[in-house]
């Protein structure tokens, strides 16, 4: 499922990342890589997503979050 479809407080792992090199560079440099454990903290309509990953609270643009596939645990 897409990261944008997860609800608050669910935990899982990042499955696949899609997008161009520029996006890939930025997203992986901040720590979002395939296989990383994450927790969705907030997912409100028309707002960026808030996820917790590698001990960091990260806010992600919705359009960007659409390109991230995850699996729940």
């Amino acid at each position: 499922m897409k990261l944008t479809e997860t609800t608050a407080d669910t935990q899982g792992r990042i499955k696949t990342l899609g997008g161009d090199d520029h996006f890939m560079n930025r997203i992986t440099a901040i720590g979002i890589t395939e296989g990383t454990r994450f927790q969705t903290v907030r997912n409100d309509k028309n707002m960026p997503l808030l996820i917790y990953l590698r001990e960091t609270l990260i806010s992600l643009n919705r359009a960007d979050a659409e390109r991230i596939e995850v699996e729940l645990q």
């Binding site: 930025r26 960091t56 806010s59």
Partner: peptide, 10 residues
């Protein structure tokens, strides 16, 4: 393509 939309830590 250069827009840094928001990928930001809080």
């Amino acid at each position: 393509e250069t827009r840094s939309g928001m990928i930001m830590e809080l």
